[in-house]
Structure formats: C-alpha cells, structure tokens
C-alpha cells in the first residue's frame, strides 16, 4: 500500500481533486459529527433559508453517534454509521459547500453526481472499530441539538484519523472497483 496522505481541514478544491479512490488518508483538524436526525434538521434549515449551527464551507461531516464519554476520555466509542441513510440529504449539503463525508457503505447516484459537480469526497472509516476510531479524537463538544442525545451535532478535533477514499471527484467508486477485483462468480 502507498503511504497515507496527511490532510487537514477545512478542505479546499485542490485537496479534494488530488484524492483518488483507494488512497489512504490521515485526517486532522476540526470535523463535525451528524447523522440521521441532525441531517433532517440541517436540510430543513437550508430549505427555510435559515443559518446553520456551523459553517459548511470546506467542512467535513462524520456520520457518527458516539457512546457516552467515560470519565477521563473525550468521547466513547466513535466509529462510522451506515451512510446510505444520509443520501437523501447529502446532495443539498454538498451544494452548500460541504467538502467531505466520512461514513461506511456505498452512496447512491445522486450523491455521487453532487460530489463530482461540486467537488466533494467520501471517505470510508472502519465500521465496527469504534474503540480504535475514538483514539484519533482529541476533543468533542456538542454544538447543536443536545436533545438528540447521540445524534446531537458535535464539533470534533481529530488527529490522524485513518480513512480511505471511497468515492472521488473523478467518478471513482471503491465499493464497485474493489468487489470487481475479488469476485469469483
């Protein structure tokens, strides 16, 4: 495998264009966690032309709802949730400046088209490795919707979060290419 690329948020168009499927990335900086219920609210705000709880431009959203932080830790287990559930909302967020998404599992055509059109990238994290993933999170702070509990939006400071590029701006899809390579039917 190639050496991992180090990236820091916020991401620029140039950062995103340089990424290709299969690239391993170590991501640092500030990212935001949001999943099902928070996505519904973010898109409702955009449709109503109201301000969002954080600026989307150049940002990265992690599809994740952590377990509670035990004493002495910034966060509990913090692995990705399945991304397809955010597909109905993602194109709107991408059109409003979102540059990266972190999750697990394949995306639909509408999301992939929005990624190509507006230059955004989709990273896969290791699903089911919540304990390991929590090691790259330095701090976590709820910035919106505390009543949603695990689904609240959190501002996360991350250091060298291990990711792989699953969909790039060039139309590549690692979920399709990877399976093609190893299929024996």
């Amino acid at each position: 495998m190639k050496e991992p690329k180090k990236l820091t948020t916020p991401l620029t168009d140039d950062d995103v264009i340089a990424l290709k499927i299969g690239d391993t990335v170590l991501l640092s900086g500030v990212i935001y966690s949001a999943r099902d219920a928070a996505h519904r609210r973010l898109v409702e705000l955009i449709k109503a032309d109201k301000p969002l709880p954080f600026e989307l431009q150049g940002q990265v959203i992690y599809y994740m709802g952590p377990s509670p932080a035990p004493p002495g830790r910034p966060i509990g287990a913090a692995g990705p949730t399945t991304s397809y559930r955010m597909d109905p909302y993602a194109p709107t967020l991408i059109a409003h400046g979102l540059k990266g998404m972190i999750g697990k599992g394949a995306r639909n055509d509408a999301v992939k088209e929005a990624m190509q059109k507006h230059r955004a990238v989709y990273f896969a994290a290791i699903g089911g490795a919540g304990a390991l993933m929590s090691k790259s999170i330095l701090s976590a702070e709820v910035i919106a919707y505390p009543e949603l509990g695990p689904e609240a939006i959190r501002r996360l400071e991350v250091k060298d979060m291990p990711l792989v590029v699953a969909n790039d701006v060039h139309g590549g899809d690692l979920y399709v290419e990877g399976v093609k390579q190893y299929s024996r039917i």
Binding site: A124, Y175, G178, V179, Y182, S183, R184, I185
Partner: peptide, 11 residues
C-alpha cells in the same frame, strides 16, 4: 466468492 470482502472494499 462474491468479492465483497472486509468493509465491502473487496476481498
């Protein structure tokens, strides 16, 4: 034999 592999990234 489907080729889905770990995390669905092929294998």
């Amino acid at each position: 034999r489907l080729g889905i592999g770990p995390q669905g990234l092929g294998g």
